[in-house]
Nucleic acid binder design. Structure first.
Length: 289
DNA sequence: CCAGAATGTCCAA
DNA sequence: TGGACCTTCTGGT
């Protein structure tokens, strides 16, 4: 489900199957029917993601903007769209289908946004987004400039798509754990090198997420096999330190993982590995300033 | 079987 | 700050 790595995989999968093809576009559910009719039988040029946003480019300055929200899905499959029975689960808002030698189709369900935009409108969406760790041209200092000047909790800043685009609740929880940061630490108490290290780590984690389609964040020595615990079975399928592990033992120190709600979203952290207040060693450089 | 929760965002008060 | 959106999965009856 959808954090930035999911959208990147979708963009890649759509481009791979449909770029350069004249495609059939429809809206079985009906809510995108007018726009689908405009696009039907036109050339699909490519697809890209930025953060959790997906843009599918068609000829004639037309872009389908998709945001999956909390529970949207975009299922890509090979084979004819009306072939032997992919069961019609849910309501298909948008279907893209190609014919020819190797037919494929893509079904969109439950998305928060599915709109037909011009390039100017697409750029207006992008202008409101911070750097995406998955984009090679991303400038992490733009995110840092927001973080360093803000008293807002780092746990909230990481989820703010204007600060940094693509992080959701899982990457937030896990990145804070891996860097021993309490979610409520104000952004302006972080150090530059610390934030840079977080960014680089996030890039590596998300690149791995694109490769595998899961969010795995535990280091080798904390993997189930190494620690003799059963592998995690969960929606996102990956091995994590704290996300949705409330009340369970921290893999590193054994403390009970805690939870709370911040800006309407669930927080998870280890009270011992992620202390609320800065340690003396950490506080020193700030005092010298 | 049904209530509730979920990796997200927007809008109204 | 709380509800709407609209879909799937889980856990408790």
């Amino acid at each position: 489900m959808p954090e930035g790595h999911t959208l990147r995989r979708l963009a890649d999968g759509i481009a791979e199957r449909f770029a350069g093809h004249v495609v059939a576009v429809s809206s079985p559910q009906g809510r995108f029917a007018g726009s689908a009719a405009v696009l039907d039988g036109t050339l699909l040029i490519g697809a890209e993601s930025w953060g959790k946003h997906l843009f599918i480019a068609f000829e004639g300055d037309r872009f389908v903007h998709v945001h999956l929200g909390l529970y949207g899905s975009f299922n890509l499959a090979d084979g004819p769209a009306d072939g032997p029975a992919p069961p019609p689960v849910g309501q298909v808002r948008l279907r893209i289908a190609s014919g020819g030698e190797s037919p494929s189709y893509a079904d969109l369900r439950g998305a928060t946004a599915c709109d037909l935009l011009t390039d100017a409108q697409r750029r207006a969406v992008l202008d409101r987004l911070g750097p995406d760790p998955l984009r090679p041209d991303a400038d992490w200092t733009r995110a840092w400039d927001r973080v360093r000047r803000s008293k807002v909790a780092i746990g909230a800043l990481l989820m703010d798509q204007e600060v940094l685009a693509g992080v959701g609740n899982v990457y937030r929880a896990e990145l804070l754990f891996r860097h021993r940061l309490h979610p409520l630490r104000p952004g302006n108490t972080l150090r530059r090198g610390q934030f840079q290290a977080m960014w680089l780590d996030l890039v590596a984690l998300m690149v791995e997420g694109v490769r595998t389609g899961r969010i795995d964040t535990v280091r080798h020595e904390h993997e189930p096999g190494e620690m003799g615990r059963p592998p995690r079975k969960d929606d996102h399928g990956g091995e994590v330190y704290v996300y949705r592990r409330t009340g369970q033992d921290c893999h590193v120190c054994g403390s009970r993982v805690r939870t709370d709600v911040l800006v309407g979203r669930n927080l998870f952290w280890c009270p011992r590995c992620q202390p609320r207040f800065r340690s003396r060693a950490e506080a020193k450089p700030a005092l010298r300033r």
